[in-house]
Simulated assay, not measured.
Amino acid sequence: MTKSELIQHIAEQNPHLYHRDVERIVTTIFDEISNALADGNRVELRGFGAFSVKHRDARVGRNPRTGESVEVDSKHIPFFKTGKQLRERLNNGADS
């Protein structure tokens, strides 16, 4: 599901809201999650999962095309861990 499909789905389920307001709400939620992660915070959505940031140290990588060694800088990457309810729903089917 893309962001625009999510907005459309929410707008269809809430006909009393303007499409532009639903779009603003979804964008604000994503922006707040992104801002929290950029600040090094963890974002937990109970029953869905938790977003956090993991640090990867610098390392020596390899160019797969040439086999040449390449220095890879350290970096921060987003990480998502599913919540218990989501895992159960995925493993027991959508009918639960």
Rank of each mutant, 00 (worst) to 15 (best):
M1E: 05
M1V: 09
M1N: 07
T2Q: 07
K3Q: 11
K3M: 07
K3W: 09
E5D: 15
E5V: 11
L6T: 13
L6A: 01
L6K: 03
Q8L: 08
I10N: 06
I10Q: 05
A11Q: 02
E12I: 05
Q13K: 14
Q13M: 13
Q13I: 06
Q13S: 05
P15G: 08
H16C: 00
L17R: 10
L17S: 03
Y18F: 13
Y18M: 14
E23T: 08
R24S: 13
I25M: 08
V26Q: 04
T27H: 09
T27C: 04
T27Q: 14
T28L: 03
T28M: 01
I29Y: 04
D31V: 08
D31G: 00
E32Y: 12
I33N: 05
S34I: 13
S34G: 13
N35C: 09
N35D: 12
L37D: 00
A38Q: 15
A38C: 11
D39K: 15
G40F: 04
N41V: 08
N41C: 06
N41R: 13
R42L: 11
R42C: 12
R42T: 15
E44P: 08
L45F: 12
R46I: 07
G47V: 11
G47M: 13
G49L: 01
G49D: 00
G49P: 02
A50N: 06
A50E: 08
A50P: 10
F51D: 09
V53T: 11
V53G: 03
H55I: 09
H55M: 09
R56P: 06
R56V: 03
R56Q: 08
D57V: 00
A58K: 10
A58M: 05
R59N: 05
R59Q: 10
V60H: 01
G61Y: 04
G61R: 02
N63V: 01
N63K: 01
N63F: 02
P64S: 10
R65N: 08
R65A: 10
T66W: 04
G67W: 08
E68I: 01
E68Y: 00
S69F: 00
S69I: 00
V70M: 14
V70D: 15
E71P: 09
E71C: 05
V72R: 12
V72W: 12
V72N: 10
S74W: 12
H76I: 05
I77E: 08
P78Q: 07
P78E: 10
F79G: 01
F79R: 10
F80Y: 14
F80E: 08
K81A: 09
T82G: 09
T82H: 04
G83D: 02
Q85E: 14
L86C: 06
L86Y: 09
R87K: 14
E88W: 07
E88K: 06
E88S: 01
E88V: 03
L90F: 04
N91I: 05
N92C: 11
N92E: 14
N92P: 13
G93F: 02
G93C: 11
A94Q: 02
A94S: 03
A94I: 04
A94G: 01
S96H: 15
S96A: 14
S96Q: 15
S96L: 14
S96K: 15
